[in-house]
Amino acid sequence: MNIYKYILPVMAAAALVGCSSDEDINNPVDIDKPSITVSKQAFTFEDGTRTSYTLASSGIDFSWDTSSDVLGIFPESTGNDQMSFPLTNGNTSGKNSLQHTLIFDEIGFDAVDGETYIAYYPYNGKLTSSSSYTDIPFNISGQDGTLSNLSNYDYMWSSGAIATKIEDEWDIDIIMNQLCSVIQFQLTMPEAATLQSLTISNDNNSNVFTTAGTFNAQTGAITATASSSSYTLNLSNVTASENEVVTLYMLVAPTTTGEVTIQVTSSDQSVYSTTASSKTFNSGKAYRYIATMTKN
């Protein structure tokens, strides 16, 4: 119970204040209506579940999870206090192959006319009142290469939506942008193998793969705290037969690489590799590497 985290220290502090060494515990002093107020939000949202993705012809389809997805929203000019915005009870509208829109009628937040609201996703319940929309933490390490796993690592930002009041009703249009890009690997294996890992390495050794840091929810700009010249997917024993195409997915922060080496390692420690030319990966875009692997 979170409430005890607040009540117990307060009670302890009150007890210490009220029992100084020169006071008789059997003859308590008169205390003039001590006022201790403990209040807590009835519900706070942790990170919740995440969006889901499916492969489509033009890209990777997106869908909100309207049972538990939550946005975090910062007002731009009225302080840094964030609000949680659950995506439940929204009406799906305008869905095409790659986007998903929810419309909320008569459900919103205490908007200020003309204010710009900056949203990010997923809501981070651990941010304090002193946190800013310019420093939202993200971490995309630990991916397993499956499509369904991508949604555990997706982050979004918005350039800001201006609240406008029309006939006593607010209208706020929030458009979320992906922070990262996706690489799809279609790798033809030269022999049967059980794959344990995939590594993409930047051959000039510069640290082009960022795996953790913070992002500005208004601009999508990233400040890296962890980056490397390579990134490894730890696979869950992906099996392939001879000449079978293995499809794997990787979320990467926007970056530009030099020539890269793509390498997979099997359970018997056999190594298969290929190379690809330099490439710029833009946020919100997906890229394919189609290659036949060569055993080293």
Partner: peptide
């Protein structure tokens, strides 16, 4: 609050 909030998310093209 009375009003309309529209939230749009995008996948990867």
């Amino acid at each position: 609050l009375a009003g309309s909030t529209k939230v749009t998310g995008h996948g990867f093209e």
